[in-house]
Design a protein around this nucleic acid. Sequence first.
DNA 1: AATTTCCATAAGTTTATGCTTATTATTCGT
DNA 2: ACGAATAATAAGCATAAACTTATGGAAATT
Lengths: 105, 105
Amino acid sequence: MAYDYRHMVALADPTRRRVFELVAQRPRSVAELTHSLPVSQPAVSQHLKVLRDAHLVRAEPRGASNVYHIDPQGLGEMRAWLDSMWTDALGSFREAISKSMETKE
Amino acid sequence: MAYDYRHMVALADPTRRRVFELVAQRPRSVAELTHSLPVSQPAVSQHLKVLRDAHLVRAEPRGASNVYHIDPQGLGEMRAWLDSMWTDALGSFREAISKSMETKE
DNA sequence: AATTTCCATAAGTTTATGCTTATTATTCGT
DNA sequence: ACGAATAATAAGCATAAACTTATGGAAATT
């Protein structure tokens, strides 16, 4: 069940981020993405693979071209992680605060 | 205002992630963290710097030692980004779905 | 006050990863 | 059916970034 942070890894690279943002705006083919970016087509394909594996985008074949759109699953998993982090981590954070209050007063 | 993804960059590295998780469990000193990890103390300090810059952790000097705890700001910023992504990106996602429905029906 | 503990920074090395060119498979247009 | 276009994969390179050892400064211990 352990969260594997694939989404963070995927979004850590600036170019890959740009790919994701472009796809998030509206569905786009690989050729279209390549034209909007300062890197080669294979580079774009490689980034898309990482984003696909992280369930952040999904490919939809449309004839010879491959149209990518957002995959809600990735964002959903991130949100779930963030929510649990919010309660767990910030819970113990609050405890620590109270304790340091006690110590100081 | 543009989101700079510092948090994602920070959490992309497995060791740094481990540091973050340990600090999230409960506040810990650098020495404590080093003992729990397979890397040297300077490596831990370097990771902590990245996490600090991303506002994911905060240092609290306690005598000679430095106790790190969670910084809510980082998680908050991530949540804000995620929420806006959720509405924007998934909004256009829904549109695309509707359109592809029209096309197919 | 000397020694040890704690942590951060610096410098250098090694590993990871993002990029390129080359190639292949599939589909479209003519 | 043939040539052009689309995209994925492979191999190699080059830079970035994660690690190491070395060092220095501040606080605790004796």
